[in-house]
Measured scan of single mutants.
Amino acid sequence: MDSLVVLVLCLSCLLLLSLWRQSSGRGKLPPGPTPLPVIGNILQIGIKDISKSLTNLSKVYGPVFTLYFGLKPIVVLHGYEAVKEALIDLGEEFSGRGIFPLAERANRGFGIVFSNGKKWKEIRRFSLMTLRNFGMGKRSIEDRVQEEARCLVEELRKTKASPCDPTFILGCAPCNVICSIIFHKRFDYKDQQFLNLMEKLNENIKILSSPWIQICNNFSPIIDYFPGTHNKLLKNVAFMKSYILEKVKEHQESMDMNNPQDFIDCFLMKMEKEKHNQPSEFTIESLENTAVDLFGAGTETTSTTLRYALLLLLKHPEVTAKVQEEIERVIGRNRSPCMQDRSHMPYTDAVVHEVQRYIDLLPTSLPHAVTCDIKFRNYLIPKGTTILISLTSVLHDNKEFPNPEMFDPHHFLDEGGNFKKSKYFMPFSAGKRICVGEALAGMELFLFLTSILQNFNLKSLVDPKNLDTTPVVNGFASVPPFYQLCFIPV
């Protein structure tokens, strides 16, 4: 009986604490739906499609509103004006990374994606500088992407125009580009180590996009005490870190300090320079996690976009025909596509942009946080508050993009057929937390897609009208449904 009384008292205290925290903070924060004790607004949000729920709530509470995930307040920004004001106009104040408990377990605050403060700034600055020195957006990395595009075309030829699921092959190409940047090595598509790495990356994007992960991140005790797919994700990350550590040891034994070959060499050189400046942010643990982040951000996002792009091109054969006509006119058949071609191919450029806009790969991006107490639109948001960005509300804005739910390359073309930029184009987020590999991803999408369409016609196994382009999961990332196609050599 005594234990029951204690339990009831504990629960009562928890409920009172929950109510007090919510009521004391709500006077400062933007308005929002009334949260339930302990669980907050979790029942009012469709976990399978958070973005749709945010759109519905914005119609009631406006472009800036507050939700509670458990006891934790989260300020939501919906629509271009609110997102721009926060991420661009007040970029420094909104540059923090929001709480992501599962990532905390995986990387302990290291790396480039989930770190904060001085650690994040130094690692991000170093990573950007190193990638630029190796030619991100310049010639040397373009050579690597072109080489991988040629290998991709050869792998597709091996399908002999038979029906195939493109998931694996389209994942190999961007993964190999990242391998060449980090390890100075590309792998054969049949290499077992490479296959294991690909498998872990593919599993992780599916797990991260599941409703279960949303629950884990908002009720963090689940991570330590409950079984579930989150444990598989943590094991996959541990596998990748151990693999990278092996490569780091190989580099330490063979590195030429006067001739760095890749990202690992550059990081080890930085560690050597910083060894007298303790404590340094440049450690082996930081290198492991930064490399894992580059793999995660640079492989599955690009391969998922490529997979979605081919599905949309199957669905819209008239678009595919126009792209192939432009390829034939500008590039021809006797040389590989290059980035200089893009400025002469406005329709193809528009298609690449429209694919990214339409699929809305990361509907709410990753959570941000404010780095200080900030007054925002007459609300006071306390330091450390998590900020949720609705990228969907920007990419699918119906004023900027008429009929935003329709796939239409003319969203990025003017009346004369010239490519038209849009400030609403934010597939990689915006501001200080914009994806480090934005330029690389854009290069890969253009070169891989043009190389495929230069060499193959795409054949659907069903009537294009019957192809479903609805994402199968739409949590962290929008993942396309399973499909097969035939690559018919031109």
Rank of each mutant, 00 (worst) to 15 (best):
T371W: 05
I284A: 06
N258H: 12
G137W: 06
L9P: 13
D89A: 11
I284V: 10
V319E: 06
E285Q: 09
P367V: 13
T301S: 05
M255I: 14
K72G: 05
S127A: 09
G27L: 13
E93K: 05
T229N: 14
V355H: 01
K270S: 10
C151G: 05
Q356V: 11
H78T: 13
V237H: 09
I99C: 15
H344Y: 09
H276V: 10
M269H: 10
K59F: 10
K190I: 04
S390I: 06
K432N: 07
I359F: 12
D360M: 08
L485G: 01
V436S: 08
I452Y: 01
N258Q: 09
N204C: 06
G40D: 02
Q278S: 12
L14I: 14
L152K: 01
R108L: 08
P260A: 07
G40S: 02
M443G: 02
T301R: 01
D293M: 13
C338W: 06
T229R: 14
N41M: 04
Q146Y: 07
N403H: 12
Y358H: 07
D143T: 12
E250L: 06
N41L: 04
S18R: 14
Y189L: 02
I264H: 01
G91I: 03
D262A: 05
I45R: 02
L128P: 04
C372K: 15
T364V: 13
S343K: 14
T290H: 04
Y80N: 08
S343F: 11
P402C: 10
S280H: 12
S303M: 04
S390C: 11
R377E: 07
L170Y: 00
S162E: 15
K72A: 05
P31G: 08
L90P: 06
T305Y: 04
L447Q: 04
L128V: 11
T302P: 04
V351F: 12
A350Q: 00
G171V: 04
L208D: 14
I452A: 00
E85F: 06
Q340A: 15
K247I: 07
L391T: 08
P63N: 14
S254C: 12
I434L: 14
L87Y: 07
T364F: 15
T302C: 06
G137M: 10
V76P: 00
D256T: 07
T302Q: 05
R108E: 11
I74G: 02
T385S: 10
H230F: 11
Q278I: 10
I112C: 15
I389S: 06
K138N: 13
L306T: 03
K200G: 07
C435I: 00
T385L: 03
L458H: 00
V76C: 12
K206N: 11
I223R: 11
I331F: 03
K138A: 14
S220L: 14
N277G: 09
V323C: 13
T392E: 12
K423S: 09
E354F: 00
E154C: 05
L388Q: 03
N236W: 02
F263G: 03
D349H: 15
I182W: 05
C435S: 00
Y347I: 05
I178C: 01
L268H: 04
I42V: 14
K399I: 09
T301L: 03
K160C: 10
L19S: 13
K158Q: 12
D414K: 05
N474S: 13
E300T: 12
I387S: 03
R377C: 05
V177K: 00
T364G: 14
L11T: 14
S127H: 05
P471C: 06
Q22W: 14
V490L: 13
C216F: 14
L197R: 01
C486I: 07
Q44N: 10
S209T: 14
E288M: 13
T301I: 03
S451Y: 11
D265W: 04
K59V: 09
F219Q: 06
K235M: 07
I213T: 14
R132H: 12
L170V: 04
T320L: 11
D397N: 12
F487E: 00
K459R: 12
F407V: 01
R307T: 03
N176V: 00
S23L: 12
M406S: 14
G431R: 02
N217G: 14
E147S: 05
N258F: 07
G27C: 12
A103Y: 15
C175G: 04
D373H: 04
E400T: 09
F100V: 15
I45S: 06
K247G: 04
F476P: 05
P409A: 03
C151F: 15
H410L: 08
N378K: 10
L362R: 04
G384K: 05
V355A: 06
T304R: 14
P471K: 06
L29E: 02
K423G: 09
Q193S: 11
V323F: 05
C151S: 07
Q340V: 12
L128K: 09
K28Y: 12
T469Y: 05
T302R: 00
S162M: 15
T305P: 01
K138S: 13
S53L: 07
K315L: 04
F428P: 01
K72L: 03
C216I: 14
T469K: 02
S53T: 12
A149L: 01
K190S: 10
P63R: 05
G62I: 01
Y379R: 05
E285H: 07
N258D: 14
S58I: 04
Q484P: 01
V6N: 13
Q252G: 06
L131I: 09
G117I: 03
L90W: 13
A321N: 14
L67Q: 01
F407H: 00
Y225T: 08
N41C: 05
E285W: 04
K421I: 10
K52L: 09
A321D: 11
L17G: 11
N231T: 12
I359V: 14
T320Q: 15
F168M: 07
L453F: 03
H276F: 11
F456I: 00
D262L: 01
R132N: 07
I331L: 11
K421V: 09
L313F: 09
V248F: 06
V490H: 13
G79C: 03
Q454V: 03
N258C: 08
P35R: 10
W212T: 07
T450L: 05
L54F: 13
Y61Q: 04
I434K: 14
V490R: 15
V76S: 03
I387N: 01
K420Y: 08
V64S: 05
Q356N: 09
G96S: 11
L453A: 03
T348A: 08
A309N: 02
L14S: 14
A149Q: 01
N133H: 08
G109N: 10
F94D: 04
S23P: 11
E81F: 05
L467M: 06
S23V: 13
E438R: 12
E354K: 00
V319W: 09
K375W: 10
C486T: 06
R26H: 13
M271H: 08
S127P: 01
Q44P: 05
D143L: 11
K232S: 06
L77Y: 04
V330L: 06
N133R: 08
V436D: 06
L306F: 01
L388F: 09
I123N: 14
R105P: 12
S140D: 12
P346L: 03
L131M: 11
G437M: 05
P279L: 13
R105N: 12
T283I: 07
F446V: 01
G475P: 06
K28I: 12
K200S: 07
N466A: 14
C435Q: 00
I264L: 10
I205R: 11
G111P: 15
R186V: 03
K465F: 04
A439Y: 12
G135M: 09
F69L: 15
F428S: 04
D191G: 01
G96F: 08
L458N: 00
F487W: 00
P221Y: 11
D373V: 02
D191P: 01
A321L: 11
D397I: 05
Q484C: 04
E288S: 15
P163W: 05
L87C: 13
E326H: 01
R329Y: 11
M426H: 09
V479Q: 15
N378Y: 02
S220Y: 13
Q192G: 10
K138T: 14
N474E: 10
S127I: 08
D373E: 06
L366P: 09
Q484S: 07
M406R: 14
P260H: 07
Q192A: 13
F446Y: 09
L366S: 11
T299Y: 09
P63E: 12
L453S: 01
H411C: 02
Q192C: 09
L362G: 03
Y243G: 03
I45V: 10
A161D: 04
C13P: 15
L77C: 07
K158F: 04
S24V: 13
L268G: 03
V352R: 03
N259C: 10
L19R: 14
E300I: 15
E438C: 00
S162P: 01
K241C: 03
A161L: 04
L67C: 10
S254N: 14
P402D: 14
I50H: 09
F263N: 02
A161S: 13
Q356D: 01
V370D: 01
D191K: 02
V479W: 07
G475R: 08
E288L: 15
K160S: 09
N231L: 08
S460L: 03
S422H: 09
Q454N: 03
W120R: 07
L128T: 14
V355P: 01
A161W: 02
S127N: 13
Q340I: 10
L361C: 07
Q252P: 04
T320N: 08
E93T: 08
G442V: 14
